[in-house]
């Protein structure tokens, strides 16, 4: 209240103009906006109209007006991609021409490769090997320390470039385990399965396993080694470890021995450029199992 009292008489009688609108005796006061505000408002209208002329704006039946400046978001994305590629051209070329085993982990090309390889992996490899590279039945786990065709940079690059058991690349890894169902009788197959279970430290029937040992020596050791240590030149898996591509149980082993397996992988050298293959190699190698 005292605020009101402090106001001078002049203030009390100072009239606020009205707009002349009256409803049931209620009048609308007119506290005018500043003139510059109106000009700003007009400016936004002019800006809005000019904008729709300069930029794509008005929808037509099948498209939209293109705008005088010729701007488009797709074009901008294309330019952005081109700019990034130009920016990466040098390091990408270096990666494509480098010998991976001599590439230092401090080299920018190494980091470019690992990051780029991760993208290529997700796009091309994750469908079979899994997004976390843990593999699946029939598709090797790329994180562990067991490699069918070798886990050095050079060997991984070769496998990626040429693939496994494909018809498109004459340099593809190739080997074929016979389907022993046509060679051995059922008892021999069951016995050798018991022996192989023992190789990887699992419980087995010692009597059958001792029969299986002979069968193994005659039929399997030439590729899988006398102690089941495998042979990478043949892509013959180690049998004396804890890693099994098609399952480590009795039934899976008998199935594998009886019918054999035939895992294939495309030759990525035909689909990816050199830099991508090498990037992928670096990525796979540093996942945890690289040799």
């Amino acid at each position: 209240m005292s605020k009101e009292k402090l106001k001078s008489d002049a203030e009390e009688t100072h009239d606020v103009e009205t707009t002349g609108h009256t409803w049931d005796g209620i009048e609308e006061l007119n506290n005018p906006l500043p003139r510059w505000w109106l000009w700003c408002f007009y400016l936004t209208i002019v800006w809005g109209v000019a904008y729709t002329i300069a930029y794509p704006a008005w929808p037509l039946v099948n498209s939209a007006t293109a705008g005088l400046l010729g701007y488009s978001t797709r074009q901008e994305v294309a330019q952005e991609i081109q700019r990034v590629e130009e920016h990466n051209a040098e390091v990408s070329n270096k990666l494509a021409q480098s010998n991976l085993s001599e590439l230092s982990t401090d080299d920018p090309a190494y980091h470019f490769g690992v990051s780029g390889g991760a993208s290529v992996y997700r796009a091309q490899c994750s469908q079979c090997h899994g997004s976390g590279a843990a593999g699946a039945k029939g598709y090797p786990n790329l994180l562990d320390d067991d490699w069918l065709w070798g886990g050095s940079l050079k060997e991984i690059e070769y496998t990626i470039r040429h693939g496994v058991r494909n018809e498109t690349d004459s340099n593809a890894h190739w080997s074929q385990m016979p389907a022993f169902g046509e060679i051995l009788d059922k008892k021999q197959i069951v016995s050798v399965a018991e022996y192989v279970l023992g190789l990887s430290g699992q419980d087995n029937d010692p009597d059958l396993a001792s029969i299986g040992q002979t069968v193994f020596a005659q039929n399997c050791a030439s590729c899988h080694g006398d102690g089941g240590e495998g042979m990478r030149e043949q892509g013959a898996p180690r049998l004396n470890d804890a890693i099994w591509l098609y399952g480590d149980d009795r039934a899976s082993l008998i199935e594998t021995i009886t019918y054999s397996r035939f895992g294939v992988m495309p030759a990525w050298g035909q689909r990816l450029d050199d830099a991508d293959v090498k990037a992928l190699t670096l990525y796979i190698h540093q996942l945890g199992g690289g040799e």
Partner: peptide, 13 residues
């Protein structure tokens, strides 16, 4: 309160 319908709605600075 005075009423003047013709007065401007915008005030110059």
């Amino acid at each position: 309160m005075s009423t003047s319908p013709d007065q401007p709605l915008y005030a110059p600075q």
